[in-house]
Amino acid sequence: MSVSENRLAALEPPRASLREKLFTWGAWIALGLILAVSFRGAQIGDLYLLGKNSSNTQAYLQDYLHPDFSSWGTIRLYIDKMWATLEMAIWGTLISVLLAVPFALLSSANLAPQWIVFPVRRLMDILRSVNELVIATAFLVAVGPGALAGVLALALHNTGVLAKLFSEAVEAVDNAPIEGVRATGGTRLHEIVWAVIPQVGPLWTSFALYRFEANARSATVLGIIGAGGIGQILFDNINSFNYARVSAIAIVIVVAVTLIDIASSAIRKRLL
């Protein structure tokens, strides 16, 4: 055996330490335990019911296969209600964007001092963590049932979401243009409007459109609890077992949401 072969044989590939191995095994065991414990609570054991009640399901699906687009009047109703839901989403998104811009700037560590950033971020965390449905129940009491309660609920929740997304974009901006504006003798506001906003503009618009897509879906659900629009007639028809209509409404929603998704992602692609 030559010297170099000896040397190569002595080279050892790296091995995981005992600590690393224990950690890996521990993580797998913990995951297994969580799955086992939650098995009953999630009623996974009742999966067999899917097959057992198949005749009920078949009857239900029968109606679904014949969506009720029978008269021009009903189609008009669906479209009107769908449009009402979109109106809710449009204004909810717009208000949230207007509110999110100042909050985002105030919660960006590179623009605002820490004693402002911290409380504003916590406030946004709270808005974001409360579901639109929960916020809407409060507004339904305050302004009565109707679209406005839905608009305000979407606006508040999305202010929290967009402020976070917006401020993350702001924190990633290039500093050189900001210094460029500062060095001309501009004010803090000048730096924001001439160096920060131009950099984050496309990303902000993209985030806002993305939230609009989400809001169009959320507004449908808000209709179920009293904000009107397509969600309301969807719920009414489910309650009166009119599944042919439920099916038709579901199709209208799917088509509308898909169209919005396609349009907005096309716009977002062009922006970025």
Binding site: A176, P177, G180, A183, H190, W194, Q199
Partner: peptide
């Protein structure tokens, strides 16, 4: 009263050259 020129060009990329030069008016 001072103009600043940096190695990492500190113009604002998405604004027009005209607007960038006009920013010199800010002070």
């Amino acid at each position: 009263t001072m103009g600043m020129i940096a190695q990492q060009f500190n113009l604002v990329g998405r604004l027009s050259l005209f607007t960038n030069a006009a920013l010199g008016l800010l002070g």
